[in-house]
Structures are given as structure tokens and as C-alpha cells.
């Protein structure tokens, strides 16, 4: 069986600089794959390109049996390839539950007319409630994102992508700014996603979380994959150690 997501020679360049340089990897159905690397390695650019936010990205991207390169972001999301943002990016004017409803509903062009006559949220409400429960936000549905603490806000961002019942979530530094207890709780939630049939591509520069959660890890540095493999191999790979220590020594 072919993998859920198959990326071949992904390339993003700005001016003369290759932010992502011929990156290839794949994510299996219900797999958890980590993408790590020091700051500026091209991790977020990778996610932007895969989720359709960089129209000029080149390379082949196959998702669930379809070639999705050139698809706009919303179409990829509708097909089950969703992402979170490093800075969460909730819809601050909507309650947490409404944020999730936005992600869980699909509309057609005639929806406007139906909605003008009937003010109900015709929603697969089960998905919204399920996503709230799965992230432990069951009691926070009526609150506004700005009223939540940082950790809960991050969870709300995760809940929003889960509410669309995705097949693959691209998580952009989900643990950034979390304290260690929150980070541990997040890790256990992430580990449970494959059991629900959701594959994960986890991007972080925090090795701890990624090594803990992922089955397969790719290490990026300056836009290139410098190492791939299961956590224990990557941990001891000399190139990885150098990329990390080198960059940290510079800081």
C-alpha cells in the first residue's frame, strides 16, 4: 500500500535562497512522523508548502492517492490534510466551539440561501464535541480564545483541526511555550491520534517531544534532510548532533 503522504523533491526558494531544498519523505496511514531541525532549517516553510500556503513551491506531493501540488489551502484541508500554526491563530471573534464549528462544517454555494432562512448550526456536532473532549476542552466551548491561557489556546488550535476529522495533521511547534506538565499531557494526546486513524507530521525544534512521540524522524538543516530514521538512530547521528550543537553554540 502506498503511503498517505508522499513528498518528492519539495523545493521552495526565495530569491536565490533555497528555504526547502529537494526534501523527500513520506507519512504512512496513521503514522507519526517528526520533522526536526534547528531554527531556520525550513520546517515551517515545509508545512506552509505542504498545506498550500506557498503557491510557488515545486516538487511532487501525493496525498491519499491524489497529486495535490497546486491545490489551494482550503481544498487540501477539505481532503483531510490540515495544519496548525506556530502562533495558534484562532478566530478571536468566535467562541472556542464556534471556532470548531467553522472547521467541522462544509458549505456549498447555496448554503447562503438556506442559512438566511434558518439560523441553526446544522453541524456534525458530534465532531465538534468529540474534538473538544479529545483535547480536554469540554468545559471551555463557550469561552473566547482570548480568555484562555496559553496552553489551552494551543489545545484549542489542535481541537479545531481535529474537528474537521482529518486524515493527516501537520503540527507546527505545538509545544512552543507550554510548561513541562502541559507538554507531557500534549505528548500523550498526540500519541493517541493514530488510534483514531489520524496521521501526524510533528514539527518542532524541541527534540524531547519529537523523540518521545514519533516513530520516524527526519532532521532538516538549512533546507535539506540530513538524517532520517527511528528516534534512537537519529539521536546518535553525528550530523544531527553537529547541526544542533553547532547552531546552539552560535546563539
Amino acid at each position: 500500500m502506498s503511503p498517505l503522504l508522499e513528498v518528492t523533491d519539495l523545493m521552495v526558494s526565495y530569491g536565490g535562497l533555497n528555504a526547502v531544498d529537494l526534501v523527500s519523505f513520506s507519512v504512512e496511514e496513521a503514522g507519526i512522523v517528526g520533522l526536526i531541525g534547528p531554527n531556520g532549517a525550513g520546517k515551517t516553510t515545509c508545512i506552509d508548502a505542504l498545506s498550500g500556503f506557498i503557491p510557488h513551491a515545486t516538487g511532487r506531493v501525493r496525498f491519499a492517492g491524489e497529486n495535490i501540488e497546486g491545490w489551494p489551502a482550503h481544498r487540501r484541508a477539505e481532503h483531510g490534510l490540515v495544519r496548525t500554526f506556530q502562533s495558534v491563530e484562532m478566530f478571536d471573534d468566535l467562541t472556542v466551539r464556534e471556532n470548531l464549528i467553522v472547521a467541522a462544517t462544509t458549505t456549498r454555494w447555496w448554503s447562503v440561501f438556506i442559512d438566511a432562512c434558518r439560523p441553526s448550526y446544522r453541524v456534525r456536532n458530534i465532531d465538534v464535541e468529540w474534538a473538544l473532549e479529545a483535547t480536554g476542552l469540554g468545559g471551555e466551548g463557550e469561552r473566547y480564545p482570548t480568555e484562555l491561557g496559553h496552553g489551552q489556546r494551543r489545545l484549542a488550535g489542535l481541537a479545531r483541526v481535529l474537528a474537521s476529522r482529518p486524515r493527516l495533521v501537520l503540527l507546527d511547534e505545538p509545544a512552543a511555550g507550554l510548561d513541562s506538565a502541559e507538554s507531557v499531557a500534549l505528548a500523550s494526546r498526540l500519541r493517541s491520534l493514530p488510534d483514531l486513524g489520524i496521521a501526524v507530521l510533528l514539527v518542532d525544534h524541541d527534540m524531547g517531544l519529537v523523540l518521545d512521540v514519533c516513530e520516524q524522524i527526519h532532521v532538516l538543516d538549512l533546507g535539506r534532510v540530513i538524517a532520517s530514521g527511528p528516534p534512537r538512530e537519529v539521536r546518535t547521528n553525528p550530523d544531527v548532533v553537529e547541526a544542533y550543537l553547532g547552531s546552539e553554540a552560535d546563539e
Binding site: M90, D92, D93, T107
Partner: peptide, 17 residues
């Protein structure tokens, strides 16, 4: 809700389908 979502954050709206 979709209108307000677009108003609040176009990038996040696109990411939400």
C-alpha cells in the same frame, strides 16, 4: 461564522477548509 472567520484571520480560515 465563516464570514467572521475570514474577517478574523484569512490564513487560519484557509487552513480550516
Amino acid at each position: 461564522l465563516r464570514w467572521l472567520a475570514v474577517r478574523a484571520n484569512e490564513r487560519a480560515a484557509a487552513a480550516s477548509g
